[in-house]
Design a protein around this nucleic acid. Structure first.
Lengths: 275, 275
DNA sequence: AAGTGGTCTAGACCACGCA
DNA sequence: GCGTGGTCTAGACCACTTA
C-alpha cells in the first residue's frame, strides 16, 4: 500500500514529494496566499493518511521541509506553517559609485519605498590582512595590509545587507576614510581628495546559499539565497583603489541597474579567482 | 545522555547541527577539498556514535541534509557524498543590448573560458497571452497578445540558462523575429529595422530558489539558487519594446557588468509588480 | 494548559549503480 | 552481489509560545 505513482512500472513519486507538490501548487494558485497559514502537521497527517496511507509524521515533515528549503513557507511555533511574504528593497550597484552625496545617502538611496522606516548603519573600521580575493582584486603585494570598513546596514534595526570596503592601508592611514562613523562628505570623496577619484566600477555577483555566520548577522530564514556583490572601483589611472564586498539577502532586495547602447560592453577579462 | 551543548543552562546545539557544523568546517579548511568524498553515513554514524552518542542514522542524515541544502555537498549513489565543485561562466547583462553582432554571439560572448565546449540553443517561438509581469513591463493593454521567443542555451548539450523574450505581437508578426531558429543578423537588429532600435536597458535581478520546472529544465542540484533577470529594452522614443526573462543558475554563472562615473545613476522608479 | 513544531530512536525495505 | 543512499514507520520526549 501507499506510494501511488503515476503509472505502473514507472518510478513512483515519493509520497513526501507528492505532498510538497500538492502544497506548492496550492500556494501558487492562491489557495494559500502569502502570509496565510497552511494546515498543521497533524492536519496533513490526517489528510494524507486517508489519501496515500501516510502513517508517520516524519513523512509529512519531509514534505514540508522541501518547501521550507525552497523559501516558500516557514514554521512559526506554536501556530503552524505560514506562506512567506516578501517585501524587497531596490539595490542599486550604480549608486555605490557616486562621489558627491553623503555616504549615508547611498544606503538611503537604495530604499525605493519611503515607508517610514529609518535606515541606520553599524560601522566598524579595522586593519586586516587581505584575503586572496581582495589581494587579487586590488593587485596587492603578498602580505600587504588593507584597511577595512565594515558596515551592517539596517532598517528599523533589522539588518538588510552587509557592506565591507577595503583599500590599501598605505593609501588611507590617518585619513577620514578610517573614521569609525559616518563621514559627512562620503568616503569615496576622501579617496578623491587623496588623488584617487573613482571613475570606473567593475561588478561581480556570485549567487549562493548563505554561511551560518551570514544567517546570524542578517537573520536569514531557511531557503534564502544571497548575492555576494564584489564592486571594484578604479581611479583615473586605471588602478584598482577600493573593493567593496556586499552580501545581499535575496528575500529583501531586487538588484537594479541600467545600460545604454553607447556604453558598449567591453569588459576586462577576470584576472582573478572567484571567492 | 547525548546532546552536549556549550554551557549548562544554555540551549544546546542539536546534534545534527553539530555534525553539519563539523563537516562544514572541514570543507572550509580544506580537509575535504572540492570534488572529494566525505565519510559515508555509516562512517559518520560510527564516529558520532562515539563522540555524541548518536544512535540513529536519521540524525546523521539530518545533518548531511543541512549541507546538501546549502549547496555544499551532493550524494552520488552508491559512492557516498561529495564536496561540490563549481565552474562558472561569465554572464553579462550588457551583452544583451548589442545590435550588431549575430545573436548567437551574445551567448558565445558569455563564455569567458574557451574550453572547447560548444554552445547551442534550442529555440521555440509562440504566441501567448502576456503574464502580469510582462504586461506591466511592456505597458500592454489588457488582453493584448505577445510573441514569445524562448531559448534554452546549452554548452555541450548541458543547459546553462533559460532566455525568453517577449514583444508585442503586432510589432513583429510576420517578421524574422518570429523565425524559430537562429537569425543571422540578430533579432535585436530586426527590431531596429522595424523602427525600434534598442537604446536603453533596464535590468532587474530577483534571487530565489528554483521552481521544480526549472530544476528539471536546467538539471539543478539541491541548494542551487537562481537569479531571475528581467531585461527591459526601450527604443529611442522611450517606449518598452522588448522584455527578456532570463533564469540564471547560481552555480554556473558569475554575473558581471561595469559602471562609469559619468553614467550617473538616475533610474526610473519601478512602476510594476515583481514576479 | 494545550498544541505546535523540533529532535531523536531503532528499526525496516527498497532502488540504484558499480564491480 | 554488495554497499550506498532513499524512503518510511511508530513511537518518544522536549521546548516554545500563546491563550
Amino acid at each position: 500500500m501507499a506510494a501511488s505513482g503515476t503509472h505502473v512500472g514507472m518510478k513512483p513519486t515519493p509520497v513526501y514529494q507528492q505532498i510538497a507538490d500538492d502544497l506548492r501548487r496550492q500556494i501558487a494558485d492562491g489557495t494559500f496566499p502569502p502570509g496565510s497559514q497552511i494546515p498543521t502537521e497533524a492536519d496533513l497527517l490526517e489528510k494524507y493518511g486517508e489519501l496515500h496511507g501516510v502513517r508517520s509524521r516524519q513523512t509529512i515533515r519531509q514534505g514540508l521541509s522541501v518547501l521550507v528549503n525552497a523559501g516558500l513557507i516557514e514554521p512559526r511555533r506554536p501556530k503552524g506553517y505560514f506562506v512567506i511574504e516578501r517585501k524587497r528593497l531596490v539595490y542599486r550597484p550604480q549608486a555605490e559609485f557616486r562621489q558627491k552625496p553623503p555616504e549615508v545617502d547611498i544606503f538611503t538611496n537604495l530604499i525605493q519605498e519611503e515607508d517610514g522606516r529609518t535606515p541606520t548603519q553599524d560601522i566598524e573600521v579595522s586593519i586586516v590582512e587581505a584575503t586572496a580575493t581582495i589581494r587579487e582584486h586590488l593587485r596587492l603585494e603578498p602580505g600587504e595590509l588593507v584597511a577595512a570598513r565594515r558596515r551592517v546596514r539596517k532598517l528599523d534595526d533589522v539588518p538588510y545587507n552587509l557592506n565591507d570596503s577595503y583599500v590599501r592601508l598605505s593609501l588611507v592611514q590617518g585619513t577620514d576614510w578610517m573614521h569609525p562613523g559616518d563621514v559627512a562628505r562620503g568616503t569615496n570623496a576622501v579617496l578623491g581628495e587623496l588623488g584617487h577619484e573613482l571613475v570606473y566600477g567593475f561588478h561581480e555577483f556570485y549567487l549562493r546559499m548563505p554561511t551560518p555566520d551570514e544567517v546570524l548577522r542578517l537573520s536569514l530564514g531557511p531557503g534564502v539565497p544571497v548575492a555576494e556583490h564584489l564592486a571594484t572601483a578604479f581611479d583615473a589611472s586605471g588602478n584598482p583603489a577600493q573593493i567593496t564586498v556586499n552580501v545581499i539577502p535575496g528575500d529583501r532586495h531586487v538588484i537594479v541597474f541600467e545600460t545604454h547602447r553607447d556604453s558598449e560592453a567591453n569588459l576586462p577579462r577576470i584576472p582573478w579567482g572567484a571567492p
